[in-house]
Simulated assay, not measured.
Amino acid sequence: MALSVNTNLSALSGQYQLDKTQQAKKQILAQLASGSQLNSAADNAANLAISQQLQAQINGNNQALNNTSDGISMVQTADSALSQLQDNTQQIQTLAIQAGDGALNSSNRQALQQQVDQLTQSNSQIVQSAQFNGTPLLSGGNATTFQVGANGTASDQLTVPGINLSSAPAAGGLNGYNANLGATNTIDVTTQANALAAQQNTQADLGTIGSQRSTLGAISNSFNSVINNLQTSNISNQAANSRISDTDFAAATAQLASQQILGQAGTLTQAQANIAPQAALSLLG
């Protein structure tokens, strides 16, 4: 190898290797500081694209979980209102059966009627006022659809059927409902004959309420199933994303130690390479 002063190939080679070592240390330090081994597309473009897709799925699932929780809250609110209607209607039925007792006089039945009126007025008020975030739950009959998935397909939606207990009994409403919250004799028990008809009407109302509660129970189970699926999916996606993007601190710290040693060795080697051209001076002496 020729001995030259203008071009120090050993020093240039040392500079190149030392620069590579410094870049490697910089990358490892970034991984350790951020906890991610994908801090730029240059780190691993393919893995970064996969990681972004997985993170988008995770974010979408998390929002779908929130939406599903809203759906469960809505169903629970509606079921709570139906439960109170059911209790009140059962009391009305008991009073109607009592009013059918031939030993009672008209005054007795009028006292029972007052109790029935209070219960029907309470039921009517519940039907009109039950709502969730401004959406009527027991009147209007409008269905509510929830986005419970992150893939933008029809299967990612779950619909809560509308309930309209304020409609006519033949259309699914309650015999014990009256739009006038102060109405009396909506369910009439003032005579034995009326008491018998009242028993039949309240029995029909109990059937209507029970059917609605069964429907809501099935919908609630569907929401809970969606939550389980979303949580399972998130666990899988997060595990996959972690393998791709998270920093392995044990491996990274070992690599950092190795690069630090190489950096120190490179610095010492560079110093020796810079001294080598001085040998040319000995020839001039």
Rank of each mutant, 00 (worst) to 15 (best):
A183C: 07
S236N: 14
N185F: 01
I50E: 01
D248C: 07
L138A: 09
N6T: 10
T215F: 11
S167Y: 05
Q278L: 15
N185K: 03
A24G: 00
D87I: 09
A103R: 15
A218G: 13
V148L: 08
Q84Y: 01
T202W: 00
A42E: 04
Q131L: 07
Q57K: 10
S245Y: 01
T267L: 13
T208M: 05
A198I: 04
T202M: 03
A41Q: 01
N61T: 02
Q113V: 09
N62P: 01
N221M: 05
Q86I: 00
G149S: 10
N234D: 11
Q15P: 00
N66F: 01
N224C: 05
N47W: 00
P136F: 09
T208G: 05
L119H: 00
A96N: 02
Q199N: 06
Q98V: 04
S13M: 10
A103P: 09
K20P: 01
I58V: 09
Q238G: 05
V189F: 01
G210P: 03
A103Y: 14
A195K: 10
A218S: 14
N228K: 14
S242W: 08
Q113F: 11
A183Q: 06
T7M: 09
T68W: 03
S139E: 14
A11H: 10
D205T: 10
V160W: 10
S4V: 06
P136L: 12
T68M: 04
A111H: 09
A183P: 08
Q264S: 15
G176E: 11
N241D: 08
L216A: 12
I261D: 15
T232K: 12
T21M: 04
N108V: 05
S258G: 01
N241K: 10
F223T: 07
N6S: 13
Q114H: 03
A45M: 03
G134S: 12
F132Y: 15
L18Y: 10
Q125C: 04
A42N: 01
R109D: 06
Q238H: 06
Q238L: 12
S258R: 02
A218D: 15
T159H: 09
Q15H: 08
S242H: 10
D246S: 03
N201L: 07
S80F: 08
A279V: 12
Q15W: 03
A218V: 13
L206D: 05
G182L: 11
L181E: 08
I219R: 11
L95I: 04
K20I: 05
L65C: 02
T21D: 11
N39G: 10
I58P: 00
G263M: 11
A42Q: 05
S36Y: 02
A193E: 13
I163V: 15
Q23A: 13
